[in-house]
Design a binder for these strands. Structure first.
Length: 350
RNA sequence: GCCUGUGAGUAGAACCUUU
């Protein structure tokens, strides 16, 4: 059973619902009676694949087989409901769980908070926090991060800052994630000062920033229109012992794109190539967009060779950007050729 | 007797999926 469960879980992690299903059936075919863990792993696969109904079918099958669900089972289902934005269902499962006298843990509350955030029910997210305390489950960094993210998606910057202040007062932030979420709240208001303050708080609290922190800061700097600040974060990262990866470079390319700075974008591209970072489609799309927005269609077309060399295929987005630029420049011949390429590669279907 | 190993569910940026 352990081996089959691992196979199911591995398939789920790889996004192969079919593989998970096959492994589950193989366990049965081997004459094994599935236990709670195996059923739960299969439900997880369905949930991750967005096939919530089938996850519930497995749950009912499990119940019919007389196998009792535990907190892992309920946690998997609630998380699946959250990912499919089915808040009511998530709380329904929570209700069943409580009626079965299964003690909830952090995962349960976290999945519920996430579900509330996704459905714009911020007040309810805070109710869950109260429930959590009532059940004597202590909030941690994950809890704070989820609450901050919920505030952000609901556009409640002030509330996010409130959560952040409480977190710092209690002093339990040990990881960079809650700080990143708090910084992200600042990009809504474009308040670079507030974001920098959070960054300084983090250093003061002896939490080591990771690359995502810098990407979030770059985003805020861009929203505030402060290009120099965004670029200054690159040496700052290095100063803290981090080597910028394609993530940071992509963020800077986005800055160039939003601010209309084709020369600097090309400069960033040169740097990341020199640093042996592997550019992806998003890297090239940001570059293409920047160049096209600036009317530099030929420079953009020149990049296509580089893409080929890097083994990066154009996607629909790349073609849309290029075709728009061809249209604006009235370059019919180039546009038609690109469109044919797009057709051949199956990107001309929308 | 000792040692070791033994399966399942959570968070943050950007991107992509989907102009």
């Amino acid at each position: 059973l352990g081996i089959f469960t691992q196979v199911v879980a591995t398939c789920a992690a790889a996004g192969s619902v079919e593989g998970a299903n096959r492994a589950f059936r193989a366990a049965k075919a081997a004459g094994l009676q599935p236990d709670c863990q195996l059923y739960t792993a299969l439900m997880g696969a369905y949930c991750k694949g967005g096939r919530l109904d089938e996850a519930f079918k497995v749950f009912h099958e499990m119940e019919a087989a007389g196998v009792a669900a535990n907190r892992f089972t309920f946690g998997t289902l609630i998380d699946g409901c959250s990912k499919s934005k089915q808040v009511a269902k998530a709380f329904g499962v929570y209700g069943i769980m409580m009626s079965r006298k299964v003690a909830p843990d952090r995962h349960i509350f976290h999945a519920l908070i996430e579900a509330c955030g996704k459905s714009n029910s911020l007040d309810r997210a805070f109710d869950v926090l109260q429930d959590m305390k009532a059940e004597k489950v202590a909030p941690d960094d994950y809890t704070t991060t989820l609450l901050l993210t919920a505030c952000n998606t609901c556009g409640q910057v002030e509330r996010a800052m409130g959560v952040y202040r409480v977190m710092r007062k209690k002093g339990f932030a040990k990881s960079p994630a809650p700080f990143t979420a708090a910084i992200n709240a600042c990009s809504t208001t474009g308040s670079l000062e507030a974001a920098c303050k959070i960054y300084r708080d983090m250093l003061k609290d002896k939490v080591k920033p990771d690359e995502m922190v810098y990407c979030a800061l770059m985003k805020v700097a861009t929203a505030a229109g402060n290009v120099e600040k965004a670029f200054a974060l690159l040496p700052e990262m290095r100063l803290r012992g981090l080597t910028p990866s394609i993530m940071a470079y992509d963020s800077l390319l986005n800055t160039c794109c939003k601010m209309g700075l084709p020369e600097r974008a090309v400069e960033v591209y040169r740097t990341l190539t020199a640093e042996r970072c592997k550019p992806g489609v998003s890297t090239f799309n940001a570059l293409l967009q920047t160049l096209c927005d600036a009317g530099q269609l030929d420079e953009a077309l020149g990049l296509l060779d580089a893409m080929g060399r890097e083994g990066v295929l154009l996607n629909a987005r790349s073609y849309i950007v290029l075709l728009g630029s061809c249209a604006k420049a009235k370059r019919v011949d180039v546009g038609v050729r690109l469109f044919h390429d797009a057709e051949l590669e199956g990107h001309a279907n929308n």
